[in-house]
């Protein structure tokens, strides 16, 4: 303004609309609610303690990659999140709801959590299309033609638009796994769990599955991925978690951990695997 007095030609710059929006709706600097929050999770099989005091919070849209030697409890952790395994102790919150509460309708919760398995577990008596359609039609009571349209869209998205009428036995492992991803997505989950989904695949089929997962991550899906694919972890992971003997040993930025692991156990594991 001072300059404006001297220079009649000067006009103050228009106020940036984005600035107004920012002032009116400041970003929540202290979000209390994570999409998924795990607190003090323990899991015992008989006398064997598979998970010991696991604490983990996952934000919306975050891709968390879990690595670790076999038997470290990675898969068990994943399976506790949708209660395929019952946690021995601890709490798990999905969007603020305690899903370990016995009163909670676990079937409703599981509809919000997609899971993809190492062994695909496609329904062998149904075609790819039927595999993807079944749950939306039978559980969500979505109309058949609508569910079918959606299923075809999903199968096209995973690159199987021309295989929809084939049975699992007629598909390759990579194709089966992509159908399995589409099947999980058909329920419109808020978070997807991937349990070593490429471990049972022939090496040349791994990429097609990882590509689908990368696209999913780019689309903003919240994902928890147990994997041995370090390239995927580095490229797609927002956070890397290293587990060993049932505890989270180290976590942080994937690149940071790969470059400079702090814990000796992480160091040892990475030196073997990389």
């Amino acid at each position: 303004m001072i300059f404006g007095l001297r220079n009649k030609g000067y006009k103050s710059p228009p106020v940036d609309q984005r600035m107004i929006k920012f002032i009116k709706h400041p970003p929540n600097l202290f979000p209390m609610k994570y999409l998924l929050e795990i607190q003090g999770l323990y899991k015992k099989f008989g006398d064997i303690e598979v998970l010991k005091d696991i604490n983990l919070s996952v934000e919306r849209g975050e891709v968390v990659v879990i690595i670790g030697p076999s038997g470290s409890g990675k898969s068990t952790l994943l399976r506790c999140i949708n209660r395929l395994e019952e946690p021995t102790a601890g709490k798990i919150f999905l969007d603020g709801i305690d899903i370990t509460d016995k009163k909670v309708d676990i079937n409703k919760i599981r509809q919000r959590i997609g899971m993809v398995f190492q062994q695909f577990n496609l329904f062998t008596h149904l075609t790819a299309l039927q595999n993807v359609m079944l749950a939306p039609v039978k559980i969500k009571k979505i109309k058949k033609d609508e569910a079918e349209r959606n299923a075809i869209k999903l199968l096209e998205k995973v690159g199987l638009g021309d295989q929809i009428h084939k049975y699992p036995a007629q598909l390759s492992g990579g194709q089966q796994q992509r159908v399995a991803i589409a099947r999980a997505l058909a329920m419109n989950p808020e978070v997807m769990l991937f349990d070593e989904v490429t471990s049972a695949l022939d090496p040349e089929l791994v990429k097609e599955v990882l590509d689908v997962m990368k696209q999913l991550a780019r689309d903003g899906m919240t994902m928890i991925v147990v994997t041995h694919e370090m390239g995927f972890a580095r490229e797609v992971g927002d956070r890397l978690i290293f587990m060993d003997e049932g505890v989270i040993v180290e976590e942080g930025e994937p690149i940071e951990i790969f470059r400079n692991p702090k814990n000796p156990r992480t160091k040892k594991f990475l030196s073997v695997i990389l």
Partner: peptide, 27 residues
């Protein structure tokens, strides 16, 4: 019927009886 079939059905949100009816029994 492999255990994984039941797990996959349950993971989609089907109840035990729904899983039996739509997945396990037909196979």
């Amino acid at each position: 019927v492999p255990l994984g079939q039941m797990e996959a059905a349950r993971s989609l949100g089907m109840s035990y009886l729904q899983s039996m009816r739509y997945i396990i029994f037909p196979q």
